[in-house]
């Protein structure tokens, strides 16, 4: 399901696949203990893993897009179909069945997206660093996020894939592609002819020196690992600079040029007529153009001081 885009980078040696990171160790431990509950992983940003009888059924983290983002942002499912299915299915835990029933997406397609979201979330947590994991046993009836993968993924399978991905990521670091990098496109690609090349083109378009790979993954509704892979491949092809200083980019605006400040700088202040809104609004016959707009009931209010 993943890794279908060869990058030309060397495949890591199998030795490193046995080195489990903290997330891998936690998953293996609680998988073997057949936990049914929630594993809250603290870190930067950390995340949450949901298990049923030791199998991983869902995982979410701010560091990688969840199933909803993957489906909607990428356009795989339309906003309208999602809203309909969510209203009908989410309260009873049948969102997936509703999406399929409404032909918003096929059963196989949906499963692939939900599976890859779990693999990606676990990878993202490990990649960004975690501190600690706290298991909470909720039993088999505990609340699950909207699109779980049932019956779930075996922890060992997840951990194997995690190790493979982490080893690939270590290779990309040598060319300057790491999770906190903010790549800048050196030149853009022409509009792709093949759909398979579209993601490459889209990733390059989003590389403006502000976005990290995680930000691009959210913007495009694609997995973090796929985006990291594309960035590494684009960097190898010389199409982008993996880590341009993000402070130099255009787009930071300040209201006043500090160099020509005269007197105390202070906050910007409104000046009458400065907005030039009077030139834009259509002239009204019964109201002066720049006069105050007083509602009629206020305009006729007498001044009590003069009465008494």
């Amino acid at each position: 399901m993943n890794g279908q885009h060869p990058t030309g980078l060397s495949t890591p040696s199998t030795d490193s696949l046995d080195d489990l990171g903290p997330v891998g160790r936690m998953l293996r431990e609680h998988g073997r203990a057949r936990l049914s509950g929630v594993l809250r992983i603290s870190g930067s940003p950390g995340g949450t893993v949901f298990l049923r009888d030791g199998l991983i059924v869902a995982a979410s983290t701010p560091a990688s897009p969840g199933p909803e983002s993957l489906l909607l942002r990428s356009g795989r499912v339309s906003e309208e179909a999602w809203n309909l299915a969510f209203t009908a299915g989410a309260p009873s835990g049948h969102l997936a069945a509703e999406l399929i029933a409404q032909s918003a997406i096929g059963a196989a397609g949906l499963e692939i997206v939900c599976l890859s979201a779990i693999f990606d979330a676990v990878y993202a947590m490990e990649l960004f660093g975690v501190e600690d994991g706290e298991p909470e046993n909720t039993g088999p009836q505990g609340l699950l996020p909207p699109l779980p993968v049932l019956p779930g993924i075996d922890a060992d399978r997840l951990v194997r894939d995690l190790s493979r991905r982490m080893a690939m990521t270590a290779a990309w670091q040598q060319i300057g592609v790491y999770p906190q990098c903010r790549p800048v496109a050196l030149r853009q690609l022409s509009e792709p002819l093949l759909p398979a090349e579209k993601i490459r083109h889209d990733v390059l378009q989003k590389c403006n020196g502000r976005r990290t790979p995680r930000d691009i993954a959210f913007a495009l509704g694609q997995g973090l690992y796929v985006i990291m892979q594309e960035i590494a491949s684009l960097a190898e092809s010389g199409l982008l600079e993996p880590n341009e200083g993000s402070r130099k980019q255009a787009g930071t605006v300040s209201a006043e040029d500090p160099s020509k400040a005269s007197g105390p700088p202070g906050l910007p202040q409104r000046r009458r007529g400065a907005s030039k809104v009077g030139h834009v609004l259509p002239p009204s016959s019964n109201r002066p153009l720049l006069g105050p707009r007083i509602p009629p009931d206020l305009a006729v209010r007498p001044e009590p001081d003069q009465e008494s």
């Binding site: 960004f128 502000r210 787009g251 605006v253 300040s254 209201a255 910007p268 202040q269 409104r270």
Partner: peptide, 21 residues
């Protein structure tokens, strides 16, 4: 994680400084 853009403005809506894209 997740913060994309931000701006500081006066309370009556005039821009002071922005980190926008």
């Amino acid at each position: 994680t997740g913060v994309m853009e931000s701006a500081v403005a006066t309370v009556d809506g005039l821009l002071v400084v922005a980190d926008t894209d």
